[in-house]
Simulated scan of single mutants.
Amino acid sequence: MGGGSRAVGDVEKAVERSIEEMHEKLAEALSIGDMAKSAMCSKFHFSREFQRVTGVTPRRFLSALRLQKAKELLLATQLTVAEISQTVGYGSVGTFSSRFAISVGVSPSDYRRQNGFIDPPGIVSNGEIGGAVKGVVTGPPDADLGLIFLGLFPGRVPEGEPVSCTILRRPGPFEIGNTPPGSWYLLGHSVPAAANEALTDWQEVHVGHLGPLEVPSGASSQTVEFQLRSMRILDPPVLPALQNIRSAAFAGGLLPADH
């Protein structure tokens, strides 16, 4: 497609078209060829550019979209888990339930029963002394950010339990301690204070990502600047059920003191 900002814009638009098709055809067995066709490029070029633009493969992005839709349907409809599984493109309800539990942190039935809530995550430890990631969160000055969740994850898609996390009342300094040594992505997520996290189609969600960040063994730290921005169609969905973390945070148990 050539160089220059116009070419970059054309690539992003092509990826956007493929993501729009994913949204429209969640129940269908979309192949890489189908996605590449909607983007009007070869399979190889499509896969490479899609991952460059979004940070994840097309299949991984599609899987995340399916689970995001499943979260919405569990809370907003009376469809059974089996019906939702079919609606979002899973031929096996067992495979769907397993994938949902891994990515969201709780089974589909429990997610519905708990109205999207989940217990705060534990800290992963392998016996080594944990490090820390600290820095400053910035965001649009006039945005209704609500509480800001920051978590360290093994991959670019925020899913499952973070290895360590924190919650802020507002942009500013942060520190995530007790972080196991390793390579982690710092992922952030914020919705307006009154929003239901799982039902945000009409809300302005803000996200951010950095990484991978290398956290060595011992009491060392990484210092970063972390920027939140309005979520775009090119951003992978946020999959973990975090509402109970937010609820606990409102009660004062998880939030750092005001600065």
Rank of each mutant, 00 (worst) to 15 (best):
S190E: 05
H45P: 01
D119Q: 12
V56T: 13
S31F: 11
L239E: 08
N178Q: 11
F100W: 04
K71E: 00
S97M: 07
L242M: 09
D235M: 09
M40T: 10
M35S: 08
P108S: 12
G2R: 04
E197N: 09
G172V: 00
G130P: 07
G127F: 10
G33C: 02
A7H: 13
Y111A: 06
K37S: 14
L254K: 03
S247V: 09
S18I: 09
S183C: 09
K43P: 15
G2K: 03
A251L: 15
F96A: 05
V8L: 07
P108K: 12
R60F: 00
E197V: 13
R6N: 10
S109N: 07
R66Q: 11
V207T: 09
A27Q: 10
V106E: 03
V133T: 07
K43H: 12
V205M: 05
R246L: 15
L73E: 06
F117D: 15
L210H: 02
A193E: 14
A29N: 10
M40A: 14
E24W: 04
L254R: 00
V191G: 01
G55W: 07
L199W: 05
R6L: 07
Q243I: 00
A82T: 11
F46D: 04
E24A: 15
G94F: 05
Q222Y: 00
H209A: 14
L74V: 08
I148F: 05
F100H: 07
L73R: 09
Q203M: 03
S92D: 10
F117Y: 14
L242R: 11
E204I: 14
D142P: 01
V8S: 01
D110C: 02
R60A: 15
A143P: 03
G211R: 02
G177T: 13
A70E: 06
P121G: 09
G9P: 00
S125H: 13
F61M: 12
T80Q: 11
G91Y: 04
A198S: 14
A194K: 13
P240A: 00
D34N: 13
D34W: 04
A249P: 06
G155W: 05
W202N: 15
G122S: 11
V124A: 14
P173I: 02
G116A: 06
R48D: 06
E24C: 03
H259S: 13
A14Y: 01
W202M: 12
H206D: 04
R113I: 03
A198R: 05
L79H: 14
A14G: 12
S217W: 02
M22L: 09
F226R: 04
E159T: 05
K25T: 08
S247H: 11
G105F: 08
H45G: 06
P180N: 02
A101W: 03
E204Q: 13
V224S: 00
T80K: 15
V8W: 09
G55M: 05
E175V: 15
V133F: 01
I84Q: 11
R232V: 00
G55D: 06
R59H: 04
I176Y: 04
P108V: 10
G130F: 03
Q51W: 01
R66C: 00
N244K: 12
R99M: 09
E197H: 12
G4E: 10
P240M: 04
M1W: 11
H189T: 00
V93C: 10
R246Y: 15
R232F: 00
G127M: 08
G130H: 06
F153E: 04
S190Y: 07
C165D: 15
V81M: 10
